[in-house]
């Protein structure tokens, strides 16, 4: 029998890639607003289900979007936009109001928990609780073999997107005026406002960008494994854990944390049942919070 190490490596990198996508958006939003945005996970699910609706569920739309590879790309774009829109609306009608009232982080947490529960139930009503996949049948999956580990085309896209988004976001936040504004808000929202930064507008944009990345993550999960309405919580918690162990508010830290989490999870279940993954992930989080609460890379 061949060694399973290469496949475990491949699986770790893929899992890390998905977590990294969730962590990128989450980290960005956390940096500007300083609260655990639990709706981030369900926004990923909304992105996935939008693509599911226009390529699978609605027949007349499906015949349009399934014609060519361009149609699929277009569908993914619509999914991403939809996720971004939901993020924008949540900020405008919920989180902004709480910010105006200077609510405590716990109020934000509970309110986003409420929004999360609502949206997740809506998804279940619209699309049933069943497991759905976005991709085609198992026959036409393109795979690559790298150092003895097998990865699919979708998984390769995940890795490429993570690297591209991380670099673009990292450079954009570092060089642009927008990035400097985000940093200022992150340090002190009140002072940022006084020196003339349109804090509300910046936070709005942050929500749009963060949610769009989450939407992409949800769509890629849909193509890779599949969609279910409850997928949001799992994705979100992994994204949060990745952000915290990597260094919260730090773009590169979140990605680093995500890959570390992917490796620990996948090698952790080498000898035991896969159901332990979540417990391992939280175990890692708790160890980090006790030993190195600021994460690997400090902001």
């Amino acid at each position: 029998m061949e060694s399973i190490v290469p496949q475990l490596m491949a699986n770790s990198i893929i899992a890390g890639g998905i977590y990294a996508l969730v962590a990128l958006g989450f980290n960005l939003i956390y940096g500007a607003t300083k609260f655990f945005n639990l709706t981030h996970g369900v926004i990923a699910a909304i992105g996935g289900y939008t693509v599911f609706y226009i390529t699978k569920k609605n027949d007349s739309l499906a015949s349009f979007f399934n014609q060519s590879i361009g149609g699929t790309v277009f569908a993914v774009l619509i999914g991403v936009l939809c996720a971004a829109l939901v993020g924008y609306l949540l900020d405008k009608f919920l989180y902004k109001k709480l910010r105006d009232r200077k609510a405590s982080p716990m109020v934000f947490l509970v309110a986003s928990l409420g929004a999360f529960t609502c949206l997740q139930a809506f998804l279940a009503i619209l699309f049933t609780s069943q497991f759905q996949t976005l991709g085609g049948g198992a026959g036409d999956i393109v795979t690559y073999t790298i150092f003895g580990g097998i990865i699919t085309e979708v998984q390769a896209i995940v890795i490429v997107s993570v690297v591209v988004i991380m670099l673009v976001l990292g450079i954009f936040l570092k060089k642009s005026l927008f990035g400097k504004s985000v940093e200022a808000i992150s340090d002190d929202e009140h002072v940022a406002k006084i020196v003339g930064i349109h804090t509300e507008k910046i936070i709005s944009i942050v929500f749009v960008i963060g949610s769009a990345i989450a939407g992409l993550a949800g769509i890629l999960v849909g193509y890779d494994t599949g969609l279910e309405p409850t997928m949001g919580m799992g994705l979100l918690l992994k994204g949060v854990i990745a952000s915290i162990i990597g260094g919260i508010g730090n773009v590169y830290g979140g990605v680093l944390g995500a890959f570390l989490l992917g490796f620990v999870e996948n090698f952790g279940i080498w000898k035991i049942s896969g159901e332990w993954k979540d417990a391992i992930a939280f175990g890692l989080l708790i160890v980090f919070l006790i030993v190195r609460p600021q994460g690997i890379l400090k902001r």
Binding site: A103, V107, A111, L113, G114, A115, T117, A121, I125
Partner: peptide
Amino acid sequence: AQMRQVVYGALLIGLML
């Protein structure tokens, strides 16, 4: 069953607001 989730989610949001 799902509506129950919607209602109590909405309640949480409303109360927090």
